[in-house]
Write a protein that binds this DNA or RNA. Structure first.
Lengths: 117, 117
DNA sequence: GGTTGACCTGGAGCACGCTCCAGGTGAAAT
DNA sequence: ATTTCACCTGGAGCGTGCTCCAGGTCAACC
Protein backbone atom coordinates (compact mmCIF):
# COMPACT_ATOMS: atom_id res chain seq x y z
CA UNK A 1 0.00 0.00 0.00
CA UNK A 2 1.22 3.45 -0.95
CA UNK A 3 0.33 6.75 0.68
CA UNK A 4 -0.55 9.57 -1.71
CA UNK A 5 2.94 11.01 -1.33
CA UNK A 6 4.48 7.66 -2.20
CA UNK A 7 2.18 7.20 -5.17
CA UNK A 8 3.31 10.58 -6.46
CA UNK A 9 6.93 9.42 -6.34
CA UNK A 10 6.18 6.03 -7.90
CA UNK A 11 4.03 7.27 -10.74
CA UNK A 12 5.38 10.70 -11.52
CA UNK A 13 1.87 12.12 -11.50
CA UNK A 14 1.03 15.00 -9.18
CA UNK A 15 -1.38 14.31 -6.34
CA UNK A 16 -3.89 16.60 -7.99
CA UNK A 17 -3.61 14.58 -11.16
CA UNK A 18 -4.09 11.31 -9.29
CA UNK A 19 -7.23 12.69 -7.70
CA UNK A 20 -8.38 14.00 -11.05
CA UNK A 21 -7.85 10.62 -12.71
CA UNK A 22 -9.87 8.97 -9.99
CA UNK A 23 -12.59 11.58 -10.28
CA UNK A 24 -13.05 11.10 -14.01
CA UNK A 25 -12.86 7.33 -13.74
CA UNK A 26 -9.48 6.64 -15.26
CA UNK A 27 -8.59 5.10 -11.95
CA UNK A 28 -11.13 3.04 -10.11
CA UNK A 29 -12.10 4.23 -6.64
CA UNK A 30 -8.89 4.00 -4.65
CA UNK A 31 -8.99 2.40 -1.18
CA UNK A 32 -9.13 4.72 1.83
CA UNK A 33 -7.84 4.26 5.35
CA UNK A 34 -10.02 4.90 8.41
CA UNK A 35 -9.42 8.62 8.08
CA UNK A 36 -10.53 8.64 4.46
CA UNK A 37 -7.03 9.05 3.07
CA UNK A 38 -6.09 7.21 -0.10
CA UNK A 39 -3.99 4.07 0.01
CA UNK A 40 -2.88 3.06 -3.45
CA UNK A 41 -2.47 -0.68 -4.09
CA UNK A 42 0.33 -2.26 -6.06
CA UNK A 43 -2.21 -2.78 -8.81
CA UNK A 44 -3.15 0.91 -8.83
CA UNK A 45 0.50 1.79 -9.25
CA UNK A 46 0.85 -0.65 -12.11
CA UNK A 47 -2.22 0.67 -13.86
CA UNK A 48 -0.95 4.22 -13.41
CA UNK A 49 2.24 3.12 -15.15
CA UNK A 50 0.15 2.05 -18.12
CA UNK A 51 -1.74 5.33 -18.06
CA UNK A 52 1.54 7.20 -17.97
CA UNK A 53 2.74 5.37 -21.03
CA UNK A 54 -0.43 6.07 -22.97
CA UNK A 55 -0.51 9.69 -21.88
CA UNK A 56 3.13 10.35 -22.74
CA UNK A 57 2.57 8.95 -26.18
CA UNK A 58 -0.21 11.44 -26.72
CA UNK A 59 -3.33 9.39 -26.19
CA UNK A 60 -6.21 11.72 -25.29
CA UNK A 61 -7.90 11.25 -21.92
CA UNK A 62 -11.14 10.25 -23.65
CA UNK A 63 -9.42 7.32 -25.36
CA UNK A 64 -7.67 6.25 -22.18
CA UNK A 65 -11.09 6.25 -20.60
CA UNK A 66 -12.40 3.89 -23.25
CA UNK A 67 -9.42 1.66 -22.64
CA UNK A 68 -10.03 1.75 -18.88
CA UNK A 69 -13.62 0.71 -19.46
CA UNK A 70 -12.55 -2.19 -21.63
CA UNK A 71 -10.16 -3.36 -18.94
CA UNK A 72 -12.89 -3.16 -16.34
CA UNK A 73 -15.39 -4.96 -18.53
CA UNK A 74 -13.45 -8.21 -18.29
CA UNK A 75 -11.49 -10.68 -20.37
CA UNK A 76 -13.85 -10.79 -23.30
CA UNK A 77 -12.68 -7.29 -24.26
CA UNK A 78 -9.09 -8.38 -24.85
CA UNK A 79 -9.48 -8.31 -28.66
CA UNK A 80 -10.87 -4.76 -28.45
CA UNK A 81 -7.99 -3.74 -26.23
CA UNK A 82 -5.54 -5.13 -28.77
CA UNK A 83 -7.28 -3.18 -31.52
CA UNK A 84 -7.17 0.02 -29.52
CA UNK A 85 -3.49 -0.38 -28.66
CA UNK A 86 -2.57 -1.32 -32.22
CA UNK A 87 -4.29 1.77 -33.52
CA UNK A 88 -2.47 3.84 -30.95
CA UNK A 89 0.79 2.16 -31.85
CA UNK A 90 0.32 3.26 -35.44
CA UNK A 91 -0.18 6.82 -34.27
CA UNK A 92 2.95 6.66 -32.16
CA UNK A 93 4.84 5.37 -35.16
CA UNK A 94 3.57 8.31 -37.17
CA UNK A 95 4.60 10.75 -34.48
CA UNK A 96 8.11 9.34 -34.47
CA UNK A 97 8.36 9.47 -38.25
CA UNK A 98 7.02 13.00 -38.31
CA UNK A 99 9.45 14.16 -35.64
CA UNK A 100 12.37 12.55 -37.43
CA UNK A 101 11.42 14.24 -40.68
CA UNK A 102 11.09 17.65 -39.04
CA UNK A 103 14.33 17.08 -37.24
CA UNK A 104 16.04 16.79 -40.60
CA UNK A 105 14.70 20.19 -41.51
CA UNK A 106 16.04 21.60 -38.26
CA UNK A 107 19.43 20.04 -38.91
CA UNK A 108 19.53 21.64 -42.33
CA UNK A 109 18.58 24.97 -40.87
CA UNK A 110 21.35 24.70 -38.30
CA UNK A 111 23.85 23.76 -41.01
CA UNK A 112 22.78 26.71 -43.07
CA UNK A 113 23.19 29.08 -40.14
CA UNK A 114 26.60 27.58 -39.40
CA UNK A 115 27.62 28.22 -43.01
CA UNK A 116 26.97 31.90 -42.45
CA UNK A 117 29.56 32.21 -39.70
CA UNK B 1 1.76 36.50 -53.98
CA UNK B 2 -0.75 34.20 -52.34
CA UNK B 3 -4.33 34.96 -51.36
CA UNK B 4 -5.37 33.89 -47.88
CA UNK B 5 -7.05 30.78 -49.30
CA UNK B 6 -3.87 29.87 -51.18
CA UNK B 7 -1.73 30.44 -48.12
CA UNK B 8 -3.96 28.05 -46.19
CA UNK B 9 -3.34 25.36 -48.80
CA UNK B 10 0.41 26.03 -48.98
CA UNK B 11 1.06 26.14 -45.25
CA UNK B 12 -1.51 23.81 -43.78
CA UNK B 13 -2.45 26.43 -41.21
CA UNK B 14 -6.05 27.60 -40.96
CA UNK B 15 -6.79 31.18 -41.94
CA UNK B 16 -7.65 31.93 -38.34
CA UNK B 17 -4.27 30.61 -37.30
CA UNK B 18 -2.50 32.71 -39.92
CA UNK B 19 -4.27 35.79 -38.63
CA UNK B 20 -3.48 34.79 -35.08
CA UNK B 21 0.20 34.33 -35.87
CA UNK B 22 0.29 37.76 -37.44
CA UNK B 23 -1.54 39.28 -34.51
CA UNK B 24 0.90 37.94 -31.93
CA UNK B 25 3.91 38.81 -34.05
CA UNK B 26 5.05 35.38 -35.17
CA UNK B 27 4.50 36.64 -38.66
CA UNK B 28 5.44 40.16 -39.57
CA UNK B 29 2.67 42.39 -40.85
CA UNK B 30 1.54 40.74 -44.06
CA UNK B 31 1.04 42.91 -47.16
CA UNK B 32 -2.50 43.97 -48.05
CA UNK B 33 -4.11 44.71 -51.38
CA UNK B 34 -6.13 47.87 -52.00
CA UNK B 35 -9.13 46.34 -50.26
CA UNK B 36 -7.12 45.48 -47.18
CA UNK B 37 -6.98 41.77 -47.92
CA UNK B 38 -3.80 39.86 -47.14
CA UNK B 39 -1.39 38.90 -49.87
CA UNK B 40 1.24 36.51 -48.58
CA UNK B 41 4.68 36.74 -50.17
CA UNK B 42 6.86 33.79 -51.10
CA UNK B 43 8.95 34.70 -48.09
CA UNK B 44 5.94 34.61 -45.79
CA UNK B 45 5.13 31.13 -47.04
CA UNK B 46 8.70 29.99 -46.44
CA UNK B 47 8.75 31.40 -42.95
CA UNK B 48 5.43 29.72 -42.22
CA UNK B 49 7.05 26.45 -43.26
CA UNK B 50 9.70 27.00 -40.63
CA UNK B 51 7.06 27.84 -38.06
CA UNK B 52 5.18 24.69 -38.98
CA UNK B 53 8.27 22.62 -38.42
CA UNK B 54 8.96 24.15 -35.04
CA UNK B 55 5.35 23.90 -33.98
CA UNK B 56 4.97 20.28 -35.02
CA UNK B 57 8.04 19.38 -33.04
CA UNK B 58 6.46 20.83 -29.96
CA UNK B 59 8.11 24.20 -29.63
CA UNK B 60 5.89 26.51 -27.56
CA UNK B 61 4.61 29.69 -29.19
CA UNK B 62 6.62 31.79 -26.75
CA UNK B 63 9.87 30.21 -27.92
CA UNK B 64 8.93 30.57 -31.56
CA UNK B 65 8.34 34.21 -30.81
CA UNK B 66 11.85 34.58 -29.44
CA UNK B 67 13.17 32.91 -32.56
CA UNK B 68 11.13 35.24 -34.76
CA UNK B 69 12.58 38.21 -32.93
CA UNK B 70 16.11 36.93 -33.43
CA UNK B 71 15.48 36.53 -37.14
CA UNK B 72 14.11 40.05 -37.36
CA UNK B 73 16.99 41.50 -35.37
CA UNK B 74 19.44 40.75 -38.16
CA UNK B 75 22.49 38.69 -38.98
CA UNK B 76 24.32 39.26 -35.75
CA UNK B 77 21.82 36.96 -34.04
CA UNK B 78 22.78 33.92 -36.10
CA UNK B 79 24.78 32.37 -33.24
CA UNK B 80 21.79 32.79 -30.92
CA UNK B 81 19.52 31.23 -33.48
CA UNK B 82 21.87 28.26 -33.73
CA UNK B 83 21.84 27.90 -29.96
CA UNK B 84 18.08 28.03 -29.85
CA UNK B 85 17.66 25.47 -32.61
CA UNK B 86 20.30 23.18 -31.12
CA UNK B 87 18.52 23.24 -27.79
CA UNK B 88 15.27 22.49 -29.53
CA UNK B 89 16.91 19.72 -31.48
CA UNK B 90 17.96 18.10 -28.22
CA UNK B 91 14.38 18.24 -27.03
CA UNK B 92 13.14 16.69 -30.25
CA UNK B 93 15.71 13.94 -29.82
CA UNK B 94 14.42 13.31 -26.32
CA UNK B 95 10.85 13.19 -27.54
CA UNK B 96 11.77 10.59 -30.12
CA UNK B 97 13.66 8.49 -27.60
CA UNK B 98 10.84 8.74 -25.11
CA UNK B 99 8.26 7.74 -27.69
CA UNK B 100 10.35 4.79 -28.81
CA UNK B 101 10.71 3.62 -25.24
CA UNK B 102 7.02 3.89 -24.53
CA UNK B 103 6.28 2.17 -27.79
CA UNK B 104 8.23 -0.84 -26.54
CA UNK B 105 5.96 -0.96 -23.53
CA UNK B 106 2.92 -0.84 -25.79
CA UNK B 107 4.32 -3.64 -27.93
CA UNK B 108 4.83 -5.76 -24.85
CA UNK B 109 1.33 -5.04 -23.73
CA UNK B 110 -0.05 -6.06 -27.10
CA UNK B 111 2.00 -9.26 -27.05
CA UNK B 112 0.73 -10.04 -23.61
CA UNK B 113 -2.86 -9.54 -24.69
CA UNK B 114 -2.26 -11.70 -27.74
CA UNK B 115 -0.94 -14.46 -25.51
CA UNK B 116 -4.28 -14.52 -23.75
CA UNK B 117 -6.20 -15.42 -26.86
C1' DG C 1 -1.91 18.53 24.16
C1' DG C 2 -0.56 21.74 20.84
C1' DT C 3 1.49 22.61 16.53
C1' DT C 4 2.61 21.10 12.13
C1' DG C 5 1.77 18.73 8.17
C1' DA C 6 -0.42 15.43 5.07
C1' DC C 7 -4.58 14.72 3.24
C1' DC C 8 -9.71 15.31 2.20
C1' DT C 9 -13.78 17.37 -0.97
C1' DG C 10 -16.13 20.21 -4.34
C1' DG C 11 -15.58 23.49 -7.30
C1' DA C 12 -13.28 27.40 -9.48
C1' DG C 13 -9.45 28.87 -12.30
C1' DC C 14 -5.73 28.60 -15.53
C1' DA C 15 -2.38 28.06 -19.62
C1' DC C 16 -2.16 27.06 -24.15
C1' DG C 17 -3.36 27.43 -28.79
C1' DC C 18 -6.31 28.16 -31.34
C1' DT C 19 -11.43 28.89 -33.18
C1' DC C 20 -15.57 31.27 -33.70
C1' DC C 21 -18.60 35.25 -34.04
C1' DA C 22 -20.71 39.77 -35.24
C1' DG C 23 -20.85 43.23 -38.13
C1' DG C 24 -18.97 45.03 -42.08
C1' DT C 25 -16.29 45.93 -46.86
C1' DG C 26 -14.97 44.68 -51.52
C1' DA C 27 -14.69 41.58 -55.30
C1' DA C 28 -16.41 37.99 -58.53
C1' DA C 29 -19.84 35.49 -60.94
C1' DT C 30 -24.34 35.29 -63.23
C1' DA D 1 -27.40 44.66 -60.76
C1' DT D 2 -27.59 41.52 -57.41
C1' DT D 3 -26.37 37.70 -55.13
C1' DT D 4 -22.68 35.35 -53.31
C1' DC D 5 -18.36 34.81 -51.58
C1' DA D 6 -13.86 35.81 -49.68
C1' DC D 7 -12.06 38.44 -46.54
C1' DC D 8 -11.57 42.11 -42.82
C1' DT D 9 -11.27 43.49 -37.47
C1' DG D 10 -11.69 43.16 -32.50
C1' DG D 11 -12.88 40.47 -29.16
C1' DA D 12 -15.15 36.56 -26.96
C1' DG D 13 -15.20 31.60 -26.35
C1' DC D 14 -13.56 26.90 -26.26
C1' DG D 15 -11.29 22.16 -25.50
C1' DT D 16 -7.84 19.87 -23.07
C1' DG D 17 -5.68 18.67 -19.06
C1' DC D 18 -4.61 19.76 -15.38
C1' DT D 19 -3.82 23.00 -10.99
C1' DC D 20 -5.22 25.68 -7.23
C1' DC D 21 -8.14 27.12 -3.42
C1' DA D 22 -11.12 27.25 0.73
C1' DG D 23 -12.44 25.17 4.49
C1' DG D 24 -11.98 21.25 7.07
C1' DT D 25 -10.36 16.41 9.24
C1' DC D 26 -6.91 13.34 11.10
C1' DA D 27 -2.27 12.09 12.34
C1' DA D 28 2.27 12.44 14.10
C1' DC D 29 5.86 14.33 16.41
C1' DC D 30 7.64 16.82 20.04
Amino acid sequence: MYTPAEAVVETGFSLDTLRYYEKIGLLERVDRNAAGQRRFSEEDIGWLGTLRCLRETGMPIATMLRFAELVRAGDHTVPDRIKLLEEHDRQVQEQIANLAERQDYIHNKISYYRSLL
